[in-house]
Amino acid sequence: MCHKLHPANAMVLIAVLIAAALLVSHPAHSALLVSVLSFSVAAFGGAGELKGLLRFWIATGIMIIIINPLVSTQGDTVLYRTVLPLVGRIRITVESLAFAGLMVLRLFSMVLVIKLFGLSIDRDDFFGYLSRYMNKLVLTMSMTVNMIHRLRVEIQRVSEVMAMRGLDLKSGGLVKRTKAYYPMIKVVLISSLEGSVNRAEALYSRGYGNGNRSFYREIRMTGKDRIHMAVLCIYIFVIVLGFSKGWLGFDFFPSISPKSDFSAAYFAIHAASLAILIETTRRCSAWKFSEWKI
């Protein structure tokens, strides 16, 4: 039988990786996170989906890099300045461009962490495990996850329908296109909310939340999970160490400067500990596919 990551491990893993993705501000370490996570998503069998994620990342990244310097006028190194009617004073700086770059890396790290989470857990076990402690939260989560899944399918369907009804979603400026998307988003949101009510009804009709639950599968922490947790603790230590020494920090404003000198040794340790963590997760999550048993 295929062993998946223990739900507790999965929760700690996602929390640590999200914290790392959001808090690490050193571009080299952020890029390291993105590259190791991309590789691991591909190794987990999500190579096909990675292509789609890349397209999303590039499109969103370009938008962030364009919008951020327009909104944020901080930074000492001015590249361009002008005054535009309605918009006002525009001041594009190297610092705001660099910060936008970091945000793009962070965004992609977050998306990859969530993808990795989805690939490494057994959703049924996760659902069952959480419901022991947080019944109402699980109900909300189940409906939200379902809504996200439905959103993806419905956006595709509704955009086809709207295109056939003459709605032009591809041409025109930003304002026109945003306006064109409004009917589509409205349809999708209403339908998703209706779908979630149906799901809640199905959950209710099956007695969910009625009292003490029992569990079809015993979810025990195995030796593999304990090893994974140990590796996870080592990674947490490496991250905490990096922050305390300032190796993971970076100042963008008023001018670009690392919080402390770049440590190649620490970079190597971070890369190694992250790689080991991902590999351990992979082996725990897809035991039957792995050649080497832990």
Binding site: R206, G207, N210, G211, N212, R213, S214, F215, Y216, E218
Partner: peptide, 10 residues
């Protein structure tokens, strides 16, 4: 799933 919700023994 409905059996789990009723607390039926494993």
């Amino acid at each position: 799933f409905p059996l789990e919700n009723r607390g039926v023994e494993r």
